[in-house]
Simulated scan of single mutants.
Amino acid sequence: MATDDPLLYVCVRPQAGAAAAEYRSFLTATRLAPTQLDQHDLVRNPLPDHVFDRYSGFLIGGSPFNITDPDSSKNDSQRRLEFELERIAQRAAAAQTAALFTCYGIGIVTRMLGGTVSRAWPEDTGPVAIELTRNGQRDPLLGGLASRFTALTAHKEGAAEAPPGSILLATNPACPVQAYRSGDRLYATQFHPEPTTRDFTERMAVYRNDGYFAADAYDAIASRVHAASVTEPARLLRTFARSFGPAGPA
C-alpha cells in the first residue's frame, strides 16, 4: 500500500553510541532519508501517543537484553520495553501496522505468539550461512534473496521451532529459526539484516566484554567478518521499506 507516512526505527539498546550507529545502519540498508525513517529511544522513553497513527511501520533493532533473563533480574525499563514491543507485534500480527523485529526482537515476537525461546540455540558472533525454506523462497520479502546467503549474528538465545501460526522462512543448523512471518505484516529475523561488516565490527567493540565472544578473540573474529559478503540481508530491508514505508509502490 502506498503511503506518505514514515517508518519508525525503535531503539532498544541502552548504549547511546551503539544505538545511533544502528540507526545509521538501518538508514543505509533501507536507502531511506532521515525524514522517511524516524527514530525512537524505547529504552528511555515510552512509545508516544498516536504512534500507530503516525507511522506506517516499525523496524526493531537489536539489544543486549535477553527475554530469557529471570524476571527478577530485569529492571523497570526492560520490563516496560518488552511490554511496548509486544504492543507493536500485536498490532502487526493483526495487520494494523507492519513490523520487522530483528535479533533480540524475534524473542519478543516468539513469546507473544506462544512459542518457546531458550538458551539452547545461541550463535557465535560473526558470519553464518542462512538458507531459505520453500516458503521463504515464495515470500514477498525474502523471495527475492538468494536461497542461501551469509548474514551476521550474535545472540545468546533462540528457538527450535517457529511459533504457532507463523511461517518459517529461513533456517540453519545452529539456530533453526532464522526468520518467520506471522500474517502478512509481521516479520522477525534472528540474524541482523542491517549492518555492513564495518558496522558490525564497530558494534562488536562496544560489546567486547558482554559475553558474546572472548574479548581476546576480537581481532580474529573481526577479520572473518570483514572477509564476508553480506549483501542479501540489506535487500530484505529495502523490500520492507518499498512494501510498507514511504518508498512503497503506488
Rank of each mutant, 00 (worst) to 15 (best):
A2M: 07
L7D: 12
R13V: 14
P14Q: 12
A19H: 13
A21T: 07
S25D: 14
F26T: 10
T28C: 02
P34N: 01
P34F: 06
Q39R: 04
H40P: 00
L42T: 02
V43Q: 06
R44D: 03
R44E: 05
L47E: 10
P48V: 04
D53S: 14
Y55H: 11
Y55K: 04
S56E: 10
F58M: 14
F58C: 05
F58W: 15
L59N: 08
S63E: 13
S63Y: 09
P70M: 11
P70N: 04
S72H: 06
Q78M: 06
Q78V: 06
E82Q: 08
F83I: 02
I88R: 05
I88E: 13
A89D: 11
A94M: 11
T102M: 14
Y104A: 12
G105I: 08
G105N: 10
G105F: 08
I106S: 13
R111D: 05
S118L: 15
R119W: 05
R119Q: 03
A120T: 11
A120H: 14
I130P: 05
R138W: 05
R138Y: 11
P140M: 08
G143H: 07
G143Y: 04
T150N: 03
A151Y: 12
L152V: 00
H155L: 09
K156R: 10
P164W: 12
P164H: 12
I167D: 11
A174P: 00
A174F: 06
P176K: 03
V177Y: 03
S182T: 05
D184G: 01
A188F: 05
T189D: 12
T196E: 05
D199A: 00
F200K: 04
G211P: 02
F213N: 11
D216W: 02
A220D: 15
A222G: 07
A222C: 07
R224S: 08
V225M: 13
A227S: 07
V230L: 10
E232T: 03
P233E: 15
L236Y: 01
T239I: 08
R242D: 14
F244T: 12
G248N: 14
A250C: 11
